[in-house]
Amino acid sequence: MKRSPLRDLIVGIFVLCGLVSIGYLSIELGGLYYSGPAGFKLIATFDEVGDLKPRSAVVIAGVRVGQVVSIELDDILRARCELDVDPNLELDVETSAAIKTAGLLGEKFIALEPGGSDEMLESGDEIDRTVSALSIESLVGKFVNDTGLEGD
């Protein structure tokens, strides 16, 4: 095959464009981004996690600081979530964890809210205060009950 620089260039540009578009889809839309430093482990146990999944986000004040590593049942049949967050954070022992939903039907994530204690959490510690996921069904049910729309 004879070298033809123009064709090589065009092929190069083509491959580059393709990769850029794949990169755009992955990073911008897919939400795959560098999640910052990690390695600080926390445990949080919930009565109900809804459709929280491994790799769901962990945020503080709306800023992503880590992700859910695993979700499993513990001995008393509650959902035990292992979180991996930025070790540079200073979280006190009164920090609470709540499962929230982005928008009405969106993705579940865990929101951490720092407390006011001077005692700090160590890696591997458990967060005591947790708020479980609200499922849309129970919300609707509640709404229906409260407003008496059920029609008795």
Partner: peptide, 9 residues
Amino acid sequence: GSVKFWNDV
């Protein structure tokens, strides 16, 4: 908000 990296991309 709706496109997931692992599932979709």
